[in-house]
Computed example of a mutant assay.
Amino acid sequence: MKKILTIFLFIASAIGSNAQVKKIDSSRLVKPIINAKVKGQIITPTPPQTNTPLTTSVSIIPSKQTATGMLYVPPATTTQTPNQPTQPTITPAALADIVITNISFSPNTGNTYAVNYTLKNVGTAAVKKGLLSVQGYINGGAVGGGNSTSLTTEMNQLLNPGESMSSRNTFSTNGIIVGNAYTFELCVNGMKSNVGTASETWVGQQFSELNFTNNTIQSSFTIPPPPPAPADIEVTITKIEKSPVDTASFVRIYYTLKNIGETAIPSTASLSLQSRVEDTDNNPSTFLETACCGQATGEIL
């Protein structure tokens, strides 16, 4: 009643001043009563706050995380396909790799030649020397091959990475024309079939290698003409007569010298002659003696 009385007194005071008349309705809300005869501004008092809750539709939006006053955007992550296996790192296997170097030729016999060569292991693993074999070809035709070493004590020795060994093989020169140029090819760790054709393949490999494309080497091969034959002096006696100076003791022998060899005898060469006189009955008791000696003169033979 104290609160209502105060409001009532306030209203009565207002009416007495002829400013504005207010009344209270049953809901206890103050409504203004406008007096048309009173001029002035109508003041509508602020309604008192009540405990009636306001029905308001509020959407609550969760707050975003912030970092130093800026919106935080999480980094994009790579989505990994489930059950996707991880690719392992494959380490190449350690293998030998043989190359041929320093090829050369030398006569061996009348109808064979020797091919000299060096094998080097440029791979990452050792290989037994007994597994190293070579095959030779002349203009695509096989001409012989074999192990790279003839020493049985070396068969199980290792040719380690970076090491080299020298060897030689012989091949026949039958059918090779002297002076003609041929292509000689040497292969290691096996031989080839259908050499020089599109179907050329390796066969008979003894071990795996890192690289098979460097297993051959080619070289020009020519059998040079034989050297000229040495000088060969042929003597022909043309006449024998008694010496006109001393007919009782000496005779003169006339002869001809001919060089039937292929090498000239220079004029500065020393050419000495010696003759013997024997009887025809082969009786030592009747042997006469050695005839005179002398120096041949004349042109180059």
Score class of each variant (00 low, 15 high):
170 T>D: 12
171 F>Y: 11
174 N>T: 14
175 G>W: 08
175 G>C: 07
177 I>L: 15
177 I>S: 13
178 V>H: 01
178 V>M: 01
178 V>W: 03
179 G>P: 04
179 G>R: 03
179 G>K: 01
181 A>K: 11
181 A>R: 08
182 Y>P: 02
184 F>P: 09
184 F>W: 06
186 L>P: 11
186 L>E: 14
186 L>S: 06
188 V>M: 01
188 V>N: 01
191 M>T: 12
192 K>A: 06
195 V>I: 06
198 A>S: 05
198 A>T: 03
198 A>N: 04
199 S>D: 12
201 T>I: 13
201 T>D: 12
202 W>C: 07
202 W>S: 11
203 V>P: 00
203 V>K: 00
205 Q>Y: 05
205 Q>P: 10
205 Q>V: 11
205 Q>K: 15
206 Q>N: 15
206 Q>D: 15
207 F>I: 00
207 F>E: 01
208 S>R: 01
209 E>I: 00
210 L>V: 02
211 N>E: 00
212 F>P: 05
212 F>D: 11
213 T>E: 14
214 N>Y: 06
214 N>Q: 12
214 N>V: 04
215 N>P: 10
216 T>S: 13
217 I>W: 02
218 Q>D: 09
218 Q>A: 10
220 S>Y: 01
220 S>H: 02
221 F>D: 07
221 F>R: 05
221 F>S: 04
222 T>E: 06
223 I>N: 04
225 P>V: 08
225 P>E: 11
225 P>F: 12
227 P>R: 15
227 P>H: 12
227 P>F: 13
228 P>A: 08
228 P>I: 01
229 A>Q: 10
229 A>K: 10
229 A>N: 11
230 P>D: 11
230 P>R: 01
231 A>M: 06
232 D>V: 01
232 D>P: 02
234 E>M: 07
234 E>F: 12
235 V>H: 02
236 T>L: 07
236 T>I: 09
237 I>V: 12
238 T>L: 05
238 T>G: 07
238 T>D: 12
239 K>V: 03
241 E>I: 12
242 K>C: 05
244 P>Y: 05
245 V>T: 15
245 V>W: 07
246 D>C: 06
246 D>G: 06
247 T>A: 13
248 A>T: 15
249 S>M: 09
250 F>L: 10
253 I>H: 02
254 Y>V: 04
254 Y>I: 03
255 Y>V: 03
255 Y>T: 02
257 L>W: 05
258 K>F: 13
259 N>W: 09
260 I>A: 01
260 I>E: 15
261 G>W: 03
265 I>A: 05
266 P>F: 15
266 P>Q: 14
267 S>P: 07
267 S>R: 09
268 T>C: 02
272 S>V: 13
273 L>S: 05
273 L>G: 05
273 L>I: 08
275 S>N: 14
275 S>V: 15
276 R>D: 11
277 V>R: 14
278 E>S: 05
278 E>Y: 03
278 E>A: 07
279 D>E: 04
281 D>V: 10
284 P>W: 01
284 P>A: 00
284 P>G: 00
285 S>D: 13
286 T>V: 06
286 T>Q: 13
288 L>V: 14
288 L>C: 04
288 L>P: 02
